[in-house]
Amino acid sequence: MTNHVLPPFDEKTAIKKIRLAEDAWNSRDPGKVILAYTENCSWRNRAEFVVGRNEIAQLLKRKWTRELEYRLIKGLWAFTDNRIAVRFAYEFHDDSGQWFRAYGNENWEFDDDGLMRQRIASINEHPINPKERKFLWPLGRRPDDHPGLKELDL
């Protein structure tokens, strides 16, 4: 995620910021993802509370060690001057081959340089049958022509 999308946000820039975040997360590269956050960014991710890029990177490494073939779609829910509310869904399987779909919401707050200084996430997941999967692009960035959350009725 690059910092060239700066607050205050309008709908277009909020959507761009969200897509940049989605692309970074779909890379599954913690070193790339953490560059979007301030050095002392605070996160609430499920029941984990972490602060700073190092702790965020460690959380992401653990996440992508157990959430295999991870694919994510994010979408705009709302925005204000320096805050964006995001809804998302992602699919992954565990080491036994069981597929899951997770749904959630994130609240993001940015500093003046466009770095996220706070992320609050609420996430729920449930097992799915492989035939129920909807995120079928090759690993990496979601293709531009792949449907988003709204089009997938998520």
Rank of each mutant, 00 (worst) to 15 (best):
S42H: 08
L6F: 02
I84P: 10
K12S: 14
H146V: 12
C41N: 07
I84L: 09
L20Q: 15
W25R: 08
P127D: 07
N129P: 00
N129Q: 14
Q98H: 05
F9W: 00
E109D: 08
A14D: 04
E55C: 05
G52K: 03
E69F: 06
L60I: 02
R62W: 10
G140E: 02
F88W: 14
R66Y: 08
G75D: 15
K150E: 15
T2E: 07
D10P: 04
K16C: 06
A78D: 15
N82H: 10
N129R: 15
Q118S: 11
E125W: 12
A78S: 13
G104M: 04
D112I: 00
A36R: 03
F135I: 06
S27D: 08
A24S: 13
R66E: 15
N45S: 05
I56Y: 08
R119L: 12
R117Q: 13
F88E: 03
V5K: 11
R142Y: 01
E106R: 08
E22Q: 15
N45V: 11
W137V: 11
I73H: 05
L20H: 13
H93D: 06
R83C: 12
Q58I: 09
N107T: 03
I18Q: 10
I120A: 07
P30N: 05
I73Y: 04
I120E: 11
S42V: 10
A89R: 11
A21Q: 13
E22I: 09
H93V: 00
L68A: 00
E39H: 11
T13Q: 05
L6I: 09
Q98A: 03
E11V: 12
F79T: 02
P138R: 02
E106P: 01
R19V: 01
H4E: 12
A89Q: 06
I18K: 09
D94N: 15
N107E: 12
R71H: 07
D111R: 06
P143C: 09
I123R: 13
R19G: 03
N26C: 07
P138T: 13
P8T: 04
A21S: 13
